[in-house]
């Protein structure tokens, strides 16, 4: 029972880690590729077009 609870909480924390890493990836893609801040937009302009992100 103890082993079961340990393995359950271990896999839960692993799933949480994976979820956070994926959310961080989404955040990076949003800020660098989709944020409409003028500075970010101008700096990343060509990459946004070449990567197929909605730009303007």
């Amino acid at each position: 029972m103890v082993a079961f609870v340990q393995s359950f909480s271990q896999s839960r924390s692993q799933i949480l880690s994976i979820t956070f890493a994926a959310l961080l990836g989404l955040l990076v893609i949003y800020v660098a590729g989709h944020s409409q801040s003028h500075i970010l937009h101008d700096a990343a302009h060509d990459v946004r077009h070449a990567t197929g992100f909605p730009c303007h």
């Binding site: 994976i18 979820t19 890493a21 989404l26 990076v28 893609i29 660098a32 590729g33 700096a43 990343a44």
Partner: peptide
């Protein structure tokens, strides 16, 4: 700047891809 932002965006892609691989 294009090179720099390409690297940043692909780091974001890598986080997603490696999360999926780890899952």
């Amino acid at each position: 700047l294009s090179l720099l932002f390409s690297m940043i965006i692909y780091i974001g892609y890598a986080f997603l891809l490696i999360s999926a691989m780890t899952l």
